Amino acid sequence: LFELAEFCKPNGVRVALENIFTTEPGQYRQTPAEVAATVKAVGHDNLVALIDFSHAYLESTYRGLDFREQLRAMAPVAGHLHVHDSFGRPQGFYEAYFTQENTALGIGDLHMPLGWGDIEWASIFSELTFLPGTVLMMEISRRYRAEQPASLKTAQHLMSLNAVGTQLAAE
Score class of each variant (00 low, 15 high):
L50Y: 03
E95P: 08
I107T: 15
A5D: 02
A169S: 09
E3H: 09
H55N: 10
A169I: 09
R29I: 15
E34H: 06
T61M: 09
T166P: 00
V39G: 02
T22C: 14
N19K: 08
R14T: 12
Y94F: 13
F21K: 03
L17S: 03
L81F: 03
Y57Q: 10
A170S: 14
I119Q: 00
A33E: 07
L128G: 00
M159W: 04
N162A: 14
A104C: 14
E95G: 13
L110Y: 01
A150P: 02
S151H: 00
Y97T: 15
L65P: 05
K40R: 15
T154V: 15
K153A: 13
R72V: 08
T99K: 06
H44C: 08
P113K: 00
Y57D: 11
V35D: 02
L105R: 13
L81N: 02
V48L: 05
L1R: 06
A150K: 05
F125N: 02
L71K: 02
L58P: 00
S141T: 01
F7S: 13
E69T: 10
W116Y: 14
E127A: 10
R143T: 02
D85V: 04
I107A: 11
A49S: 15
Q30G: 06
G106A: 09
H82S: 04
E34D: 07
A33C: 12
I124H: 04
F53K: 08
A104P: 06
D85G: 10
W121I: 07
T31A: 09
R142H: 08
G64P: 06
P132R: 06
R29S: 05
G64Y: 04
